[in-house]
Amino acid sequence: MNLYDLSGSGPESEKFDPLLSTDQFRIERIISHAHATPEGEWYDQAWDEWVLVISGSAGIRTANPDQEFTLNAGDSYSFPAYQRHRVEWTDSNQPTIWLAVHYNEPKEAES
């Protein structure tokens, strides 16, 4: 897969492409077209996540601590497990392409 290939993506919805998954981590590519987390919703996940903006830009808000910042192409950020966060906006002039690495995911209980 070419990370810059935008086929199959469009402004109607974000596109999530799984790239690699093991017992220790998941890597996915996300393509956003002027998207934002719906008002009042937060990501609050039980695992750590590192994101890298490959192209475009995005505004991020976190809770605890409450902060808002911009990620531009080449910028990355690490969200620890249970850090509430949301995407306030993504670039409206070009697609924002993200690389997301999810790690330290809780293992499902063995039966």
Rank of each mutant, 00 (worst) to 15 (best):
I97T: 13
A73P: 07
P18N: 10
W98P: 12
P95T: 06
S111C: 03
P106N: 03
I31Y: 02
G74E: 02
N2K: 14
L71D: 07
Y82M: 14
K15M: 15
R86M: 13
L99T: 08
D48Y: 05
R29W: 12
L52D: 06
I54V: 15
G8C: 09
D48N: 14
D48Q: 07
F69C: 10
S57Q: 11
Q45F: 08
L3E: 08
N64F: 08
L19F: 02
E108Y: 12
R86Y: 11
E105Y: 13
H102N: 14
R86A: 15
D91G: 04
S7M: 00
S111F: 12
Q94S: 07
P106H: 04
Y103E: 07
D23C: 04
A81N: 05
S9G: 11
R84Y: 02
S55G: 12
L71C: 03
D75E: 05
E88D: 14
D5A: 02
P65D: 09
A73K: 00
T62N: 13
E49T: 07
Q94H: 02
E28Y: 07
N2M: 02
A46F: 00
E49V: 10
T62Q: 12
Y4F: 07
W47P: 13
T22R: 06
W50K: 02
M1K: 11
N93T: 10
A46K: 05
T96S: 15
D5F: 04
E39R: 06
I97K: 09
Q45S: 06
P80C: 03
S32F: 15
E105V: 03
E108K: 15
R29Q: 15
Y43L: 05
W50S: 06
I60T: 10
E14W: 10
D44P: 03
V101I: 14
F16Q: 04
A34I: 10
L52Y: 07
R26E: 13
V53C: 11
W50R: 06
